[in-house]
Simulated assay, not measured.
Amino acid sequence: MKRELGIARCGLACCLCSENETCSGCDSGECPDKDWCENRKCSISKRIEHCYECKDTCTKGLLSKIKPYAFTEFARRYGEDYLLDCLERNEKKGVIYHREGINGDYDDFDDVDALIEYIKTGYR
Rank of each mutant, 00 (worst) to 15 (best):
P32I: 14
G25K: 04
K120Y: 06
A13R: 06
K93F: 03
E38R: 11
N103Y: 12
D107M: 05
D108P: 03
L115Q: 10
R9V: 14
C14Q: 07
K67T: 14
G25T: 03
E30A: 14
A114F: 02
C10K: 02
G29L: 13
Y82S: 03
Y97A: 02
R124S: 11
G104M: 03
I96R: 15
G101L: 13
G94E: 15
T72I: 03
E21P: 10
C26F: 01
N39R: 03
K60Y: 02
N90T: 04
I119D: 02
S28W: 13
C15A: 10
E117A: 12
K55V: 09
C26Q: 01
R47A: 02
S24A: 14
M1Q: 10
C51A: 09
L5K: 14
G79V: 00
P68K: 07
I7R: 04
D81W: 02
N103Q: 00
G25M: 06
N39A: 05
E100T: 08
S24I: 04
G79N: 09
M1A: 12
I96S: 14
I119N: 10
R40Q: 13
C37T: 08
L83F: 01
K34Y: 09
L87R: 01
K55A: 08
D27R: 14
E80D: 02
K34Q: 15
R77H: 10
L84C: 08
I44R: 15
I96V: 15
E91D: 09
K46V: 04
L115E: 08
K2E: 06
Y52I: 08
C10V: 11
C54F: 08
K46A: 09
T72D: 10
C14G: 01
L83R: 09
C42P: 01
G11L: 04
N39Q: 06
R40N: 12
N20S: 13
N90E: 06
F109E: 03
E117S: 12
G29Q: 12
L84Y: 01
R40W: 13
C42Q: 08
R99A: 04
Y78A: 03
C10Y: 00
L83H: 01
G29H: 05
D33M: 06
G94K: 15
K65P: 02
L87P: 08
I7W: 00
G94C: 10
L87W: 03
E80S: 04
I66H: 00
R124Q: 07
H50Q: 05
E91M: 03
N39V: 13
G25N: 06
R89Q: 14
F74G: 03
Y118A: 00
D105N: 02
C14S: 10
K34P: 06
